[in-house]
Simulated scan of single mutants.
Amino acid sequence: MCPKATSAPKPTAGKPLHKFYIDYSVPAADNVFDPAAFEKFLQDRIKVEGKLGQLGENITVGREGNKLVLTSLIPFSKRYLKYLTKKHLKKNSFENFLRVVATSRDTYSLRYFKVDQDEAEDEE
């Protein structure tokens, strides 16, 4: 007989399963981006078990300095966080000059699009 396959250990009640960061320091320094509105948007739009805005104890969204921190006790996709961030940028008409870039395994960063100076010189 085959021994039973053991699954990964389940996280304890206090230990987060996922912790993601969104660094918005660049646009916040220029007073372009409102972090409070972004935090509220995420709290309202994150779906848990198919229901909007019902985060409960499983997911917490908060700010630490110039970073937004999402802590999840249940499985949560980093890609879903990027999707919601891009949706917020589009809603506030930031999608033309801000983009979402993965800077590390658990961090996204909001950056400006680079505009080549060479194009401006060629037009002159």
Rank of each mutant, 00 (worst) to 15 (best):
A5E: 14
T6Q: 13
T6G: 04
S7E: 15
S7M: 12
K10L: 12
T12H: 13
A13F: 12
K15F: 04
P16Q: 05
L17A: 08
K19R: 07
K19Y: 03
F20T: 11
F20G: 08
Y21N: 05
I22N: 08
D23K: 07
D23H: 14
D23E: 06
Y24W: 03
S25C: 15
P27D: 11
A28Y: 01
V32F: 07
F33H: 06
F33I: 02
D34N: 15
D34S: 11
P35T: 05
P35M: 09
A36E: 15
A36V: 13
A37W: 06
A37E: 15
A37L: 13
F38G: 02
K40D: 15
K40E: 14
F41M: 04
L42K: 03
L42M: 06
D44R: 08
R45L: 04
R45W: 08
V48K: 09
L52Y: 08
G53P: 06
L55D: 09
E57R: 13
E57D: 15
N58L: 09
N58Q: 12
V61I: 15
G65C: 04
G65S: 05
G65H: 02
N66K: 15
K67H: 12
V69D: 03
V69P: 00
L70S: 08
S72E: 05
L73I: 02
L73V: 07
I74C: 08
P75S: 12
P75C: 10
R79I: 15
Y80D: 15
L81M: 13
L81G: 00
L81S: 10
L84E: 01
T85F: 00
T85C: 06
K86G: 03
K86T: 13
K86N: 11
H88W: 15
L89Y: 03
K90Y: 08
N92M: 01
F94T: 01
E95C: 04
F97W: 15
